[in-house]
């Protein structure tokens, strides 16, 4: 199993999700669902590592991605100006994807996953709304926020199917990639909610790239250490190292 196989499998998985979420009217006005390749990779990591993977498990993994797609749509809503037809339908597309995920799990009778996904969504919403709370938060609080946004739902999925051994690499991998993206955006003069929130916590002696750079390096070290002792197959280890740019060149 090489990188080409993994990427092909992720693309096939995306097609399945898009088919499940297809809505001809919505697609006339808004783009395809937003699916994050990195999250899809970690969602499928147990499969790539040879874990038993039946149709029920596949449907469950698809629904986790559908929930991500739903929440991603709602992330696109403007704080103050959502009156355009496109924005109105974006609200509804998120709701539609949410209904479709519930429908898929209802049809398989997977009440446990419905419950755990619901808890995960609630936790994510609680984290996301922190941006608008008046409480003064610390840099660590904002790291916890990123962990929750990136990993909460996959973590619930792992937990139900006893894939907990993948939790550390999934969390490190997704958080690391998110922080690297934020760092790159910052260096390119762009901004984001996360950048603004971290900046609001900084002492005068600190800077965003210094604080995030340190965190990135720490996570890289931890990930390298983890991969050295991990039972993941070697091709997967190499794939993850490449994705996280951990390969020594």
């Amino acid at each position: 199993m090489d990188a080409t196989y993994i990427k092909k499998k992720i693309e096939q998985f995306k097609t399945t999700i898009n088919n499940q979420l297809h809505h001809s009217t919505l697609l006339k006005y808004i783009d395809d669902p937003i699916l994050n390749d990195e999250q899809l990779f970690y969602l499928l990591l147990p499969l790539f590592n040879g874990e038993q993977w039946d149709e029920d498990l596949n449907i469950s993994a698809v629904t986790v991605a559908m929930v991500h797609a739903s929440l991603n749509e709602h992330e696109k809503i403007d704080e103050y100006h959502a009156t355009s037809k496109e924005q109105q339908l974006t609200v509804l597309s998120g709701d539609y994807y949410s209904g479709r995920y519930y429908q898929a799990l209802a049809n398989t009778g997977n009440v446990l996953l419905i419950r755990e996904m619901s808890k995960g969504i609630a936790t994510r919403c609680e984290q996301q709304i922190k941006v608008y709370e008046k409480n003064k938060l610390t840099i660590q609080d904002w790291f916890d926020y990123i962990v929750s946004i990136e990993t909460e739902l996959i973590n619930k999925f792992y937990s139900i199917y006893e894939f907990d051994k993948y939790y550390t690499i999934m969390t490190n991998g997704l958080v690391l990639q998110r922080l690297q993206r934020e760092l790159l955006n910052y260096q390119n003069g762009q901004t984001s909610t996360f950048i603004k929130m971290i900046q609001s916590c900084l002492d005068s002696s600190d800077s965003f790239d210094k604080v995030i750079g340190q965190k990135v390096n720490k996570l890289k070290d931890q990930t390298n250490e983890f991969l050295q002792t991990s039972t993941l197959n070697d091709e997967l280890k190499l794939y993850i190292k490449n994705q996280l740019a951990l390969v020594q060149k």
Partner: peptide, 30 residues
């Protein structure tokens, strides 16, 4: 603002579905 409304709506939906999972009957969920 709109974003708070989106998160709040999603939160209430999630709580609703979590609550309804006290019922195991597949037909109810369908």
């Amino acid at each position: 603002n709109n974003r708070v409304a989106m998160h709040t709506g999603d939160y209430i939906f999630a709580r609703a579905l979590e609550y309804v999972t006290k019922i195991e009957n597949k037909k109810v969920h369908q």
